[in-house]
Structures are given as C-alpha cells and as structure tokens.
C-alpha cells in the first residue's frame, strides 16, 4: 500500500495560474473526447482578476467522499490513492459531492454518475492538465514536496532584503 507521504496529486500554484482554462480543455478532451469544461476533472476558479486557481482531487488520506457514499460505490486505490468509482453502484445521489471540501467530485451531465481526477492513469505521460499548462502552474506533487515549497517560499519572503 502506498504511504501517505508518497501519494501524489495535481496541485496548482496560484501565483502562476492565469485562469486560462487550458487544463479544463485538456482534461475534457482526454477523458471525454470533447471540449467542455463541465466535463473536466479540474476546474478553474477566478475569484477576482488577481486570484486565479485550478482545483482538483487532493487524494486525501481519509477521503470524505468515500465515507459519505451510502452505496459503497467509492474506494481508494491502494496503489495510487486515486478514488475509484463503481459506476454500477453509483446512482448520482451527490453526497460525495457535498462531502468534498474541494469541489473535486462532479456529476457527469449525461451518465449521471460521479467522477473525479484519476491522474490520467491510462496516459504514459501522466496528467494531461499538467502537460498542457502553459504557465507550469500545475505539478504532480506529494504533500512533502508541497510543504518543502511552502517553507522555501516563506523564508524567501522573510529575508527578501538580504538577497544578494
């Protein structure tokens, strides 16, 4: 079983994100053979012109979506941590959508079953949103790497004036 510290997910750096929605197009094109943001596993939020960020599944350690599913349609892959959805069991009730703090669970408009990011497990070159992101705002990271980045950025801000 994969340990939590090794689990990877797609993370967005809001300082780099410009809200271009290319990740949404790349995702829906890969997964649904169509350009349609509402079928994308990653969604962009532009809170205002200055705050842009793409959000997708965090592959949580104790996923609230799984706990909320009354039909045991959701499980977590031991190997990768992605949320596996049994489409036969899912009836689109939406409790997992309500339970997810990140809005990463979504209801498919046609199949009426839920879906979320699976890290493009069928693609050799990994998540397509990351591959296409022109700003390199998206990365596949572990929580350890994220924490490292946060530390470095905090220290850099603190000692800005001492830089050579």
């Amino acid at each position: 079983m994969v340990k939590i510290h090794e689990r990877k997910f797609v993370s967005c750096d809001p300082d780099k994100c410009v809200g271009c929605q290319i990740c949404e197009y790349a995702c829906s094109n890969n997964k649904e053979n169509a350009f349609n943001p509402i079928k994308s596993r990653i969604r962009v939020v532009r809170q205002n012109q200055l705050v842009n960020m793409a959000v997708t599944c965090r592959l949580c350690e104790e996923p609230a979506c799984i706990a909320a599913c009354p039909r045991d349609a959701l499980t977590q892959s031991e190997e990768t941590g992605i949320i596996l959805i049994d489409k036969d069991k899912c009836n689109g009730c939406g409790w997992c959508i309500e339970a997810c703090d990140y809005g990463a669970m979504m209801l498919h408009p046609e199949t009426k079953t839920v879906y979320s990011c699976d890290l493009c497990k069928d693609k050799e070159d990994g998540p397509q949103c990351v591959k296409w992101c022109p700003e390199e705002a998206l990365t596949v990271v572990t929580s350890d790497v994220l924490a490292q980045k946060a530390r470095i950025s905090a220290i850099r801000k603190l000692f800005q004036e001492k830089r050579p």
Binding site: V18, G19, C20, Q21, I22, Y25, R46, Q49, L50, N52
Partner: peptide, 8 residues
C-alpha cells in the same frame, strides 16, 4: 497580475 482569456 497578468491573466488570460480561456484557451490562451
């Protein structure tokens, strides 16, 4: 901040 239109 520099931002983008969709698809750009």
């Amino acid at each position: 901040k520099i931002i983008a239109c969709s698809s750009c």
